[in-house]
Design a protein around this nucleic acid. Structure first.
Lengths: 359, 359
DNA sequence: AAGTTTTGCTAAAACGCTTGATCAAATCTA
DNA sequence: TAGATTTGATCAAGCGTTTTAGCAAAACTT
């Protein structure tokens, strides 16, 4: 089926000249040792560059040559077995590879893990808890250094029993359970930043289209909005916050209500709603940002930068979430004890907001 | 750094009642064996459910109980070491976790790998070839069963030297090199399907906005378009194919040229262009699908389903690409010898196309 | 009842590597 | 020059499994 060829493992082998011996047995330490005429211990010492080891330059060179000639690669399994701890970090995700932008969590985790010499073992559980248990079991069997347990949207989560067997950190989710380390986006700060973009451009009557579905994001983004307003000396006006389902259709559907508010600017719960709102506004013959300034949230790829006009928004720091998760796991970053670490959501300014024309 | 404590493996240990014994040393086979009063061989046999083994029910039960009580988990590293081959499949990607929809490749690969008892080891190389070499080396050291080498968009690729040390298959990319197994989307079929949506609705003067940048997709989608037209007895008209940069701005910018063509329908190289085109058309006061039927390509999340009107398109089978890659790697699917396996691109019909009003 | 087969289990050798203990030879000391 | 030290390298145990060969006891044979 798979046709591959052998490049003759041991030189001595003599032998039955096979036609197409499949993928050669990997070269082992011992073979290198024999080729170099030294013990395996010596080879190990030079491979790992042990400073404490006393190896003559000449021997070192012989070993290095043998390694090169034979194409030796250490067997990480064997190394792990003896050292007791692997260089794996597990990432279990409920849908992260599925959902467009949260793949960045994988990316961030992978980069950071790599930076510290760890490899990422991933599993997508698709919310199936049986799969999840199996995935965690697998990771435990591979003796992962720890597990990043992540969700594709920011939410509270339960901690699966088997997860407790490992060193773990919650990414993009959190638990009320004390001691569970977690890292999440700072929704309130994000909401604050989003609102401030508008404030900074002179808007004072700013609507907020929030999501209907309960979520930490819903609360946090609203809170940030209130705080920003208050910080600017503008009293919070409940009437200015609408609610809609957080997708394009929701944003579109909110257009009419929004227009009744007499706001000059609107902050949408997310970019998808903003996208729908764009359509709604356009249908009313209104233009952005002249007639209505709009900011979104998420900085969702493919959308935000390419709407017409490009959308000012606040970025969900998925990459950072993954990276921070790894750092916390490895004890490189301190995690707050009683709550999740909050990651800053950067502001992305584009042209959907312009200074309010003096009335 | 990692502080670990032993929780007194054997029950005999009597017990210094610790307060919070941190992560205990994992339980080993031997400990189970001692607890059950049998040899490690026996435990191994029951753990692996060897049919050939003759173990009394009574013993089997004792062992099972010990396993449960101690919370034993096999050490996959040790297993791998003795068996010689791991249950890992490596996935190296140039940007797959970064790019929105191609994360589906990971997802498909992971599901399929999992189905066959393999775990996915991933690495994002971000196009950095040094990183790539390291990533492959790492996978080789972990004795992966094979490597999926994938790209975020369909293209030709070189085969890195170290990749050849492994059993590998190219995913979403291909090499001219004979014998390199690969799996890619069937662009021509996709282009054919896209065009047929339009044909089926009675359109005869169908424009195609192709990409300016060279790629297999560009050629294949054009070819499919031609073939579909010809299949419908419509001569290919070179003037009907425009070119633009394949994003929203490109689609938007092509509006004017498109309108000069007198076409009743247009097929866009991708959904992002279609999205831009929507804006362009709308600005001209034209409506979709009444004044212009449009189909896209990619079925890009967040966009296609949520444009106004929802966009008919052809789906890029990323999930299937990943899954097929694994199957080919494992020898479960045959891969064509001299070329890449082509995966079908399914049609997604929404409401951006309607029957051509009788003239 | 002595031989044969079956049953149930164990011993022990790998697997490829790391590492502390050793050791012989070379070099230094006084 | 004998003892002490340093240098350069090896020995061998052990990491947690799997697996083959083997062995004693039990269960069948005739």
């Amino acid at each position: 089926m798979i046709s591959q060829e052998k490049s003759s493992g041991t030189p001595s082998g003599a032998g039955t000249p096979r036609k197409k011996p499949p993928r050669p047995q990997p070269v082992t330490l011992r073979e290198v040792a024999e080729a170099a005429g030294v013990s395996t211990a010596t080879v190990s010492l030079v491979v790992n560059n042990k400073k404490a080891a006393r190896i003559s330059d000449e021997t070192r060179k012989r070993v290095r040559d043998a390694i090169r000639n034979l194409g030796y690669r250490p067997n990480a399994m064997a190394q792990t077995l003896v050292s007791g701890s692997s260089r794996f970090i597990g990432l279990v995700a409920d849908a992260i590879a599925t959902t467009p932008f949260a793949g960045q969590i994988i990316h961030g985790a992978q980069d950071e893990a790599w930076k510290h010499g760890y490899a990422l073992l991933i599993a997508n559980t698709e919310g199936n808890s049986e799969l999840e248990t199996d995935a965690i079991a697998m990771m435990l069997e591979y003796k992962v250094r720890g597990i990043l347990y992540s969700t594709w949207f920011h939410r509270a989560t339960d901690i699966p029993a088997s997860l407790r067997e490992a060193d773990f950190v919650l990414v993009n989710c959190f638990s009320t359970e004390p001691g569970a380390r977690a890292v999440v986006p700072d929704e309130a700060q994000g909401g604050h930043s989003a609102t401030e973009i508008l404030l900074r451009h002179g808007h004072r009557r700013i609507a907020f289209i929030n999501a209907t579905i309960p979520a930490p994001a819903r609360d946090g983004r609203l809170q940030g909005y209130r705080e920003a307003l208050e910080g600017a000396g503008i009293p919070f006006d409940e009437d200015l916050v609408l609610e809609a389902y957080p997708d394009q259709e929701g944003g579109y559907g909110a257009t009419e209500d929004l227009l009744r508010l007499g706001a000059t600017a609107v902050y949408c719960y997310n970019d998808r709603m903003a996208m729908g709102l764009y359509d709604g506004l356009r249908e009313q013959g209104l233009s952005i940002p002249a007639d209505m300034a709009v900011v979104g949230f998420d900085n969702q790829e493919v959308i935000a930068a390419h709407l017409r006009p490009p959308l000012s928004t606040v970025s969900l720091p998925h990459y950072e979430l993954g990276a921070a998760g790894v750092r916390i796991l490895l004890g490189l970053d301190e995690a707050p004890l009683q709550e999740a670490a909050k990651i800053y959501c950067p502001t992305i300014e584009r042209t959907s907001v312009q200074a309010l024309a003096p009335a």
